[in-house]
């Protein structure tokens, strides 16, 4: 038995937990269950009228060509944004960590885009990269010799959305990475410096293993971001087009639910999205747990 006893009875503890539990139930568990349940109905108008169709709707969505395309686009987007964000952030954070002068200025510069709401960042990019009036569009065309029009070319639209999202989410990763780098003991730096270890080697062989808990954390967060992020860019810039090239699952869900008012269909999609996110997050943690160095 524990020697410390905080509460006289279980009831007392339960009572104190009640507000938290109530909030979870009302805002989390109940809506989640209701979403799964709504997926069994073919609905119109915000669930006003519904026909019970059971699992059929879950199956239909899987077989829906447009949704299959959306899943592929999302997977591509997730891979690009997860690794893109992480690699670029590591490089930038490491440079900032090792730079001698102007560290604060660099820090502000890379974190700044993150301080903007996604919608604002997307609008800024839209102004810069618009095929007709974008300031950067003409230089892109003259440098690469290609026709810059992401309203027609799907590949361009995809990279615009992916790189744009990476750009304004970088700051988040960098903040954590900088904190992690700064947590490394100075004595270690001195030792390796005396040994003459080159800087890139320091990063790969010393720093990255040391900050692996942070990397894992960011990997999980970025993966979730990969599946749930990108909405602002898609909604404001490409609208999922051209011809579905940037139709992320989260955007398709919104389209189904709030443009076509098909709540049943949207419910199914959010269940799928949720399932994917859970599986990925759990898989990453289980897989990475064995190779992460937590120090001490």
């Amino acid at each position: 038995m524990s020697s410390r006893k905080a509460y006289d009875s279980t009831w007392q503890a339960a009572l104190l937990l009640l507000p938290t539990i109530a909030i979870f139930v009302i805002f989390l568990y109940w809506p989640a269950l209701r979403t799964i349940w709504l997926g069994f109905y073919e609905t119109q108008f915000f669930g006003q009228q519904g026909t019970f169709v059971g699992l059929q709707q879950y199956w239909e969505i899987l077989m829906w060509e447009k949704y299959q395309n959306s899943v592929i686009v999302t997977l591509k987007f997730a891979v690009v944004s997860v690794f893109g964000t992480l690699i670029v952030s590591i490089l930038l954070a490491y440079w900032i960590y090792t730079v001698e002068r102007g560290k604060t200025a660099y820090m502000i510069a890379v974190i700044w885009p993150y301080a903007m709401p996604g919608a604002v960042a997307a609008t800024v990019l839209l102004i810069l990269l618009h095929p007709e009036i974008g300031m950067i569009s003409a230089p892109i065309e003259s440098l690469t010799g290609m026709e810059w029009d992401w309203r027609v070319h799907g590949t361009q639209a995809f990279w615009l959305v992916a790189l744009g999202t990476i750009w304004f989410t970088l700051g988040y990763d960098i903040i954590f990475l900088l904190a992690a780098f700064h947590g490394i003991p100075e004595s270690l730096n001195e030792t390796t410096r005396l040994d003459g270890v080159p800087q890139w080697r320091m990063l790969v062989s010393v720093y990255l293993p040391l900050i692996s808990p942070t990397l894992l954390f960011l990997l999980v967060i970025n993966t979730l971001g990969g599946f749930f992020g990108g909405f602002a860019m898609v909604d404001l810039v490409t609208n999922g087009g051209p011809r579905g090239a940037t139709n992320l699952m989260i955007y398709q869900l919104y389209e189904s639910g709030f443009r076509n008012f098909n709540i049943g269909e949207a419910a199914v999609q959010s269940v799928y999205l949720f399932a994917i996110a859970v599986v990925l997050a759990v898989a990453q943690i289980v897989f990475s747990d064995k190779r992460i160095h937590y120090g001490g």
């Binding site: 709401p117 919608a119 604002v120 997307a122 609008t123 102004i127 618009h130 404001l236 490409t238 609208n239």
Partner: peptide
């Protein structure tokens, strides 16, 4: 909010 941010009327030419 976005519209205010894009006050230049950019949206008018946007590929939306």
């Amino acid at each position: 909010f976005v519209e205010a941010a894009g006050a230049a009327g950019i949206a008018g030419l946007a590929g939306c």
